[in-house]
Design a protein around this nucleic acid. Structure first.
Lengths: 222, 222
DNA sequence: TGCACACTGTGATAGTTTTCACAAAAGTTT
DNA sequence: AAACTTTTGTGAAAACTATCACAGTGTGCA
């Protein structure tokens, strides 16, 4: 209980960590050994104090005038994110997006996420293989998850099947769901859902562009 | 200038709109005509006042005792997000993720996003077709973007090529970049970047699970 | 036609996140 | 070895976001 002296991190802060990590790995490739908060903050686009507090939340201690040790920092952030030891995950939905997720080597190598099984309802897909993983019927998800002690589930099914897939995952003891469907899922208290619906992110982008273009139109219009 | 009486919306609020939209479309399918803020808020997981303020930002006006007209609300949100008229987009990177993005019919139908061209540096891919779109060399991106007045770019290339792709997009007059690479991009002031790196979202999920499991371990351990 | 209800719209309050300001610490230079 | 510079760590202030409380208003019902 003394490693992390009661420091907390906000959800937003949490999301800065993978960006910081990515930058640190880049620095490490260039042969750097230490780094200060200022370049980190500049790279990820935040205030240096913010970066310092985020790092502190992971248990990092820096040295005045020198900064932080990059290797140590990488290890701390990876541990904090749970990326340093392999976790097994189940995937529901072997369509376009699901197949792409199965194809990413990075999840295994960088984030320690091993998608061990994929599930689908489409009889045409069941039994086939995608990137070396056989597609199983969704009805088998719960039992297998429980037997294999899988705690992470990925939902890449169409909106109308999303809640059903989530229910199957929860029934199988899955505790964290990465939800790529647009639907908001209902799950028990102790289950985490990360809504990664692409349309949310796209909406934020197109709305900003839209507003800016309209504003420019008005400014140029007169 | 009177449609939207100076109301503003935060970035976080912006991201609630696509979720609200998705729920409204679901209600519409069930034959509902009007909706109040309470069920909307429950569905997307926020306070009813929050939902009301988000809707107000889109220019929506509700009627006491009745609520909001669903059809009208959908139209307002779609207009606000810029999803009601088709926008053309260029895609850089025709790998796993890029191909999946090309395969989504939804972007065209739901978000009005038409990925008209895809670009890659891999000679093996150039000239081939993916979901009916020919793959062109990235060197042609700038000129084509300018000629076709394309304003939206999607980056699905590896980290090391991301900044180069972004530069080409900016040079071609692209104003909004949907960035799926882990790298933070440097772009001019007037260009919007939406960082949709999957590892950020995954990190938030695994970190929460990780912390919860550790906490449970401590609680059970003694 | 008027009364009561359910919901919107919004100013005020509470809570959270970010930024500021500065003391303490560790190298660097003279 | 002392003075100086750079950077961390953190409590306090500012900015932003979410929640609360309630006045205003249209609708349904008597």
């Amino acid at each position: 209980m003394n490693a992390n002296k009661g420091k907390t991190i906000s959800d937003k802060g949490l999301r800065r960590l993978p960006k910081i990590l990515s930058y640190l790995q880049e620095l490490q490739q260039y042969g750097e050994n230490t780094v200060t908060c200022t370049p980190i903050a500049e790279n990820i686009g935040c205030d240096p104090t913010q970066a310092r507090k985020d790092l502190a939340a992971c248990g990092a201690v820096g040295r005045p005038r020198t900064g932080y040790d990059i290797t140590e920092l990488i290890a701390l952030i990876e541990t904090f994110l749970g990326w340093n030891n392999m976790s097994e995950a189940f995937l529901a939905g072997a369509g376009n997006l699901g197949s792409a997720l199965l194809g990413f080597r990075n999840f295994r190598e960088q984030q320690g996420l091993d998608i061990v099984c994929a599930f689908d309802n489409d009889p045409a897909k069941i039994g086939t293989e995608i990137y070396g993983r056989e597609i199983l019927p969704i009805s088998k998800l719960s039992n297998l998850a429980r037997r294999m002690h899988v705690l992470i589930g990925i939902i890449a099914v169409p909106a109308e099947s999303a809640q059903g897939a989530a229910d199957a995952m929860v029934a199988g003891g899955i505790r964290a769901i990465w939800n790529f469907s647009p639907k908001t899922l209902e799950v028990p208290e102790n289950t985490f859902v990360e809504h990664a619906d692409l349309s949310v992110s796209l909406g934020a982008l197109t709305a900003k562009l839209n507003l800016a273009l309209k504003k420019e139109e008005v400014e140029h219009g007169r």
